[in-house]
């Protein structure tokens, strides 16, 4: 089995802010991490490799420093990593990104055909959940999103049985391989990487593929290949603050009573 995992380097979202004066992103000092959902995708691929045998290859698109997420994946137990990096890719939206990744995966498949492609359910910087489906659509393979459990892979018949997480329910699916899966965090728990993996990762130099190495059309990548554009960014609007009912510390009982009277009087809570 050949498992391919798409990973993305993202800024640690809890630390990104907008400068209210210039409306620009303050990225200064914000650490980069592997997208947390992608980490679970790598973990799952490695577990499946341990169970069914085979190989795990991670692929990422990003600037040269995105090498770090490939090395992180090697720590988790991936065998190999490829970084798609070219200045022409900069400014790609989800459509262009899925195109570049697809072209990278196709090139990879020339060498070693894949059985399963994994993605995180979404990236925490954009939260779009579009690149995974985009790759599946382009490769014309089944797309199975929000996977929370892989029950079984039939290596002989090339089929997979898995559970998808839907609103308030889970769906049991069987599908033909190759297929693309996007995964949720509940799927597995990340294991603490053993030292030999850490050493291997520290030594690892991923292959870097540019527009020279993969076949891409110029008008499908970067800004030219991106139908969407950011018109503006701004700090989230604040809802108008309301009324503070005084006395909460000195006389909580009486203050609570006042609040309840207001809620009932203004019919916010119906008096049954």
């Amino acid at each position: 089995m050949h498992f391919v995992v798409c990973v993305k380097q993202v800024p640690d979202s809890s630390e990104v802010r907008v400068d209210p004066e210039t409306n620009t992103l303050i990225r200064e000092g914000v650490p980069s991490i592997i997208n947390p959902y992608d980490a679970h995708a790598v973990e799952e691929a490695v577990r499946l490799k341990e169970k069914y045998g085979g190989k795990v290859t991670v692929i990422s698109m990003g600037p040269p420093q995105a090498e770090e997420v490939i090395r992180k994946s090697i720590q988790f137990g991936a065998d190999e990593g490829i970084l798609l990096s070219d200045r022409k890719f900069a400014g790609s939206d989800t459509l262009a990104t899925s195109y570049v990744l697809t072209q990278g995966i196709k090139k990879l498949a020339e060498r070693e055909p894949f059985d399963l492609i994994f993605c995180g359910k979404q990236a925490i910087d954009g939260d779009t959940a579009q690149v995974g489906p985009g790759i599946a659509a382009r490769l014309k393979i089944p797309q199975l999103t929000y996977v929370l459990n892989i029950e079984e892979i039939n290596v002989e018949e090339k089929t997979i049985k898995l559970h998808r997480k839907l609103e308030g329910m889970r769906e049991v699916i069987s599908a033909k391989l190759p297929a693309l899966l996007t995964v949720v965090q509940d799927l597995n728990e990340l294991r603490y990487a053993p030292l030999p993996n850490m050493i291997r990762a520290a030594r690892y130099r991923p292959q870097v593929w540019t527009t020279e190495n993969i076949e891409v059309e110029d008008d499908k990548i970067g800004l030219n290949g991106s139908p969407t554009a950011v018109r503006k960014i701004f700090a989230p609007p604040e809802r108008e603050g309301g009324e503070i009912i005084p006395g909460g510390q000195e006389n909580p009982e009486e203050t609570a009573r006042k609040l309840v009277e207001r809620l009932l009087k203004e019919e916010i809570i119906a008096d049954k």
């Binding site: 809802r239 603050g241 309301g242 503070i244 909580p252 203050t255 609570a256 309840v260 207001r262 009932l264």
Partner: peptide, 28 residues
Amino acid sequence: IFKVATYGIVGDLLQVVPAMTKAFKEKM
């Protein structure tokens, strides 16, 4: 949270919430 709240009470919820429950019970 007070910036988005329609009504707010600055106080300890462990005191305020039981008092609210009591008041609702009485009023209703």
